[in-house]
């Protein structure tokens, strides 16, 4: 796989995944996936259904446990595999600390229904980081203003539209001040007219140079916002290139037919 950090060699890589392998039952879902992401990269992961995009993302922050591979986040090793093929993660406290550098937004939002919008956002900073409530609220309100939902501060999630829920989910993830944001099809559960508001928030985040890894079927987002595009098929990355190149002339025939199909 070509490294994606070509023009950013002076920066240490933000995330380095090497030869990730994962199977469910007898099915090999990731067959050796490698990817390197530099600070500020916005990487769109595209590919057909069942190709392992979600599994790849979930392996990065330990929602799934790897069978084999190496994972390095901001220079810190998260998991490594020895010569005998045994995959080891760092001890639990380090594991949790390193995984916290990655925020995640899910297709199904997964907001906490018993908490108001504001409470959803301040829960983790207070409980996990031990910050004072008073210190967290102004920052939470600022995040809410950014995603355009300050007026929904005291609403419960069930009162929000899908697009609003997803924007709260983004604000909630950002409240933990992650260095990398992972998105798994953030707009796929939304009515078409609501995807725009979520994509706008994501685009804004990209403009602020957040490092992002986005599994998406939104080809417009992949083309206009992402810096790099990764095409996955059958548990492998077939192609990983700067976005403009990828759309101008995809080199792999499978990528080409997928893009033709999607555009």
């Amino acid at each position: 796989m070509p490294s994606m950090t070509s023009d950013l060699a002076s920066h240490p890589s933000m995330l380095e995944a090497r030869d990730l392998r994962k199977h469910f039952g007898g099915v090999e879902v990731l067959k050796g996936v490698s990817l390197e992401i530099a600070r500020g990269d916005v990487v769109a992961v595209i590919g057909p259904s069942g190709s392992g995009k979600s599994t790849f993302l979930r392996c990065l922050n330990h929602l799934e446990t790897l069978d084999a591979g190496h994972l390095v986040v901001e220079g810190e090793t998260l998991a490594s595999t020895d010569a005998a093929g045994i995959c080891r993660y760092v001890p639990e406290p380090d594991l949790r600390r390193i995984c916290r550098k990655m925020g995640m937004v899910f297709q199904q939002f997964n907001l906490f229904p018993h908490l108001t919008v504001l409470q959803n956002i301040i829960e983790a900073p207070i409980t996990v980081k031990g910050l004072a409530r008073d210190a967290v609220i102004p920052r939470a309100e600022e995040l809410l203003r950014k995603v355009g939902l300050l007026d929904k501060r005291d609403s419960y999630p069930s009162r929000l539209s899908g697009g609003q829920k997803q924007r709260v989910a983004i604000a909630r993830a950002l409240a933990m001040e992650p260095d990398i944001m992972l998105f798994d099809e953030p707009t796929s559960a939304l009515d078409p007219e609501l995807t725009g508001e979520v994509l706008r928030s994501m685009r804004q985040l990209a403009e602020e140079h957040m490092t992002m890894l986005v599994v998406t079927h939104e080809m417009n987002f992949a083309r206009d916002v992402s810096t790099h595009v990764v095409f996955m098929d059958q548990g492998q990355i077939l192609e990983a290139r700067p976005a403009a190149e990828m759309f101008a002339n995809p080199s792999h025939p499978r990528t080409r037919s997928f893009l033709e199909h999607m555009l």
């Binding site: 929602l63 199904q108 018993h114 983790a124």
Partner: peptide, 24 residues
């Protein structure tokens, strides 16, 4: 999804139970 959301926000299992799951 509630467990996964808690987990990626850094909550421990105990915190997830106490703050997220049991109240629901």
């Amino acid at each position: 999804g509630q467990y996964e959301a808690s987990r990626v926000l850094g909550l421990s299992y105990g915190q997830t139970m106490r703050r997220i799951i049991l109240p629901q």
